[in-house]
Simulated assay, not measured.
Amino acid sequence: MNTLLSIETRNAVLLKMAALLDSERAAIIKINKADLEAYNGEDISMYDRLKADDSKVNEMIASVKHLAAQRDPVGIERFSFKHDNGMQVYNKTASFGTVLIIYESRPDVTVEAAGIAFKSGNKILLKGGKESLRSNLKIVELWHQALKAHGASTDWVEYLQFNRTETQAFLENPTQKVDLIVPRGGERLIAFVKEHATCPVIISGRGNNFVYVHKEADQQIALDVIINAKTTKISACNALDKVLIDKNLPNKEAFIKTLISKLKESKIKILGDEAISKFDDVEAIQSDDIWYKEFLDYKIAMAEIDSNEDTIAMINKYSGGHSSSIITKNNEVAKVFMENVDTAAVYHNASTRFTDGGQLGLGGELAISTDKLHQRGPIGLEHLVTNKWYVHGNGQIR
């Protein structure tokens, strides 16, 4: 078992990692190009996530520097109690131990997720996708250099070069202790991990996010939010897939026409219910199953809806439990929506694209959980810990 490293050592390793990412920038980009060239490019969102260009390397450096500047998430007192018999009782945060991160295509996860887990005092096992193997191995090599530079064992960050069969075998019967598994990727990956894992799994589920344009919406805000949430990053789990428009929206027809033309400018394919499919450039929805789907593509589904209550019911039935937004000037209506929609993040007059650890003030994230235990939404440093009871006595017996 690895003994917990002091916070000074953990921070020094993170800062060394930042320096190495910078000095090895050209090598990382070059190796990543080989991964990109080897990828068959069938999935545009996968290709986008696989790329490690100059700006992506800058993000990696910023994330580890930011982690080094954060307070130690381990050993924070959450509760204290003085027993009648004189015992002093504390509950404090503690690291999980070993965290396994299973992910697809994203070399930045090898930096950011490993960094968050490491700063939280955990040993990290990384199982990346085959499409990013070269990039990942290069980054892990840098982690090992950073650890060695501060006298820490390279065991703290380990890369598992397993194929699917070996991964399944490891999940079902780990050859070393694993305390928590975090899968980052599509629904197939998450289902695979859930099916075979023998320890707790943080579920980072599908997005399938909704925006509701209430009849009292500021229509310019509605247009801005929908275009931003849909078009800025197709591959993001916080991207928008569904738009519900209040039947009683004033100048509804003009609003819908403007929205369609703006979506068309960004080459978005539009699917509509009976009311929306009457407009030009909209394809009729063939089956209600479409409302369950996360697109991760240049595609959006739109419908008219009767009320806030109907909207809440529809989102709670179909969404992935990730993010939803209401556009309205009516604070009371927004409050009802936000309290009753069952998603990890709820927005009023803002884009769903902010469901992200960095954007919500956590500095970074390991994943975005659509589970309710033990943390919901972005999983940051503060959440990658468990807790432990510390009880100090002087001979008390019960």
Rank of each mutant, 00 (worst) to 15 (best):
V282D: 05
I260Y: 02
D371Y: 00
H348G: 07
A229V: 08
L373I: 06
W156Q: 10
N85K: 09
K242T: 15
D356V: 09
K264A: 10
S153N: 07
K247Y: 12
T98D: 02
V99N: 02
V182K: 01
S55T: 15
T98G: 06
Q219W: 00
T352S: 14
N238E: 07
K372N: 07
T328N: 11
Y39Q: 07
L360D: 05
G358N: 13
K267V: 00
E283M: 08
N308F: 01
G128K: 07
K242N: 14
G361N: 08
R106S: 06
K257Y: 03
I116T: 07
H66C: 12
R78I: 09
D54Y: 02
S351W: 13
Y298V: 00
M87I: 11
A345S: 13
A229R: 02
Y39R: 12
I76C: 06
N32M: 09
I29S: 10
V243N: 12
V336D: 14
G205V: 00
V157N: 09
S6R: 02
E283Q: 12
G97N: 06
E283N: 04
N58G: 15
T355A: 12
E104K: 02
T93D: 05
T110F: 06
T370Q: 05
E294A: 07
S235N: 05
C237Y: 03
A38E: 11
K299P: 01
L381T: 14
N340A: 10
K262I: 00
L147H: 03
I290E: 15
L142V: 09
I270M: 04
S120W: 07
M87K: 07
K278T: 15
F81Q: 12
L263Y: 01
M1K: 04
L126F: 05
S277L: 05
G393W: 08
I76E: 15
H348V: 13
I76S: 09
I368P: 04
T98I: 02
K372Q: 09
K123D: 08
I276K: 08
R206H: 01
S132D: 15
K16W: 00
A27F: 02
N85M: 10
S6K: 04
A197P: 00
N209G: 07
N85C: 11
